[in-house]
Design a protein around this nucleic acid. Structure first.
Lengths: 241, 241
DNA sequence: TCAAAAGTGTTGCTAGTACACCCATGT
DNA sequence: ACATGGGTGTACTAGCAACACTTTTGA
């Protein structure tokens, strides 16, 4: 772990990622518990190298945390209140934490840099939760998938960022047919339906939902899924590319 | 005109505004001709004060150029390719121009600052073109309303920024009912229709368009407009607030 | 009375919703 | 056979597009 060289990055501009996953009928977000402070949670994020685009920075940050390449990523909004960090109740805790835990990497000047005013560009990512083996970043105790319904209070304005990402996801879901990125390769119609229900927090009747999705003509029907249950075996689908 | 104090601003982060107006059946964009260089055009933009939010910065920049307060403003995307300025064919021209025209305000260090790598946050604004009395900024020769159909080549990636703003405007038009911001207080149904046609570059049949708009239940019918033409006088509408 | 264009009405299509029904599966 | 849930079909509705028609205005 080298020293932090602030000249390599753009100052006062960061990227925060809302990584969505789906599991157990719940829409989940990957959040990280910081090593310092008690009960300090935060969205995975990072800074932008002078040599890379903001999209590349987001991909890189995601790659570092999830090990996954070629993830569905979408920029959804920039957050730029002047007091989103400076005025935050969390700033002092973060500064103290960095001094204790990160003295090797961050000297005082770097700590000032990291906790100065930041504008952040929000990205959201859609991943197959089962494929992700989250890697903790520096100064993170662990990463955790948490249902969007019961997220803890997070540092700064990260709860608001998740809300905005969720709104944007809902808006884009039908239009861009991106929901399948949250599912495994193969899935049943019921699974898609339950995914949509988790995202919209709303029930859809099966028959009409099925008609709508099949009408999109983006699914390929593969075989049947015999679960051992005493009912008709559902078809297995995959997303046509 | 004071000296430029870079400490007052966030470095490497700018705001560019796509100011839409409507006139003569055409969707127009307010662009500025730079004082230096030949045929150098650019979008109105600016930097973000350490003390203000990015939304406030966009409002301020707009206020400075149009004299208008309370303008409809929407952030639509951030642009962050590392070579959008550094690799741009325009960079050297801009640097030379600033050295010639702006020596009082920008010393060499400031010129380096201004022409370094920038991430920009794009906002679009909708204004009643007739209410705007454009004020030239520093180092601008004049501002001009140009139809979105025949914009000149602009500096850096500003043409792409306009395209993205146009896409975003189209997406939001129906959803958020923001089109009326481009019209005067009072207007006829034909005028709304022609505005929509200009934005979508597509014709709409009058009768169905009228039904749709009236169905939104956001218009108040005022009186009739007698133009002297030998045809039935159209109703005048205004937008209900 | 006529031309121009505003405004209204009617019909048919399509997409979405609600309801009912049949089918496959394992006990 | 039967309970369970998967899958399909039909009727109803709302919203949109295409057509035709009437009304107003000033020459």
């Amino acid at each position: 772990m080298g020293e932090f060289r602030k000249e390599d990055y753009i100052a006062q501009l960061s990227i925060d990622c809302v990584i969505f996953g789906y599991n157990n009928n719940e829409l989940k977000v990957l959040i990280s518990k910081l090593s310092y402070g008690e009960d300090l949670w935060s969205l995975p994020g990072g800074f932008i190298l002078q040599t890379e685009s903001i999209d590349q920075a987001a991909s890189r940050i995601l790659m570092e945390r999830t090990g996954l390449d070629n993830i569905y990523l979408e920029q959804f909004r920039a957050f730029g209140s002047p007091d989103r960090i400076i005025g935050s109740e969390y700033r002092e805790v973060v500064r103290a934490g960095l001094r204790d835990f990160a003295a090797k990497k961050f000297d005082d000047e770097a700590i000032d840099w990291v906790t100065s005013r930041f504008v952040c560009i929000g990205y959201y990512a859609l991943v197959d939760l089962n494929k992700v083996d989250p890697k903790i970043g520096e100064f993170e105790e662990f990463l955790k998938w948490v249902s969007i319904e019961d997220l803890p209070n997070m540092t700064h304005d990260h709860n608001e960022i998740v809300e905005e990402a969720h709104k944007s996801l809902r808006q884009n879901l039908d239009e861009k047919l991106i929901g399948f990125n949250l599912l495994p390769e193969e899935f049943t119609m019921r699974e898609i339906k339950e995914l949509y229900e988790a995202i919209y927090d709303k029930e859809f009747p099966m028959n009409n939902f099925q008609k709508k999705i099949l009408g999109l003509d983006v699914l390929e029907r593969l075989g049947k899924k015999y679960t051992g249950a005493q009912n008709r075996a559902p078809y297995i689908y995959k997303f046509k590319k």
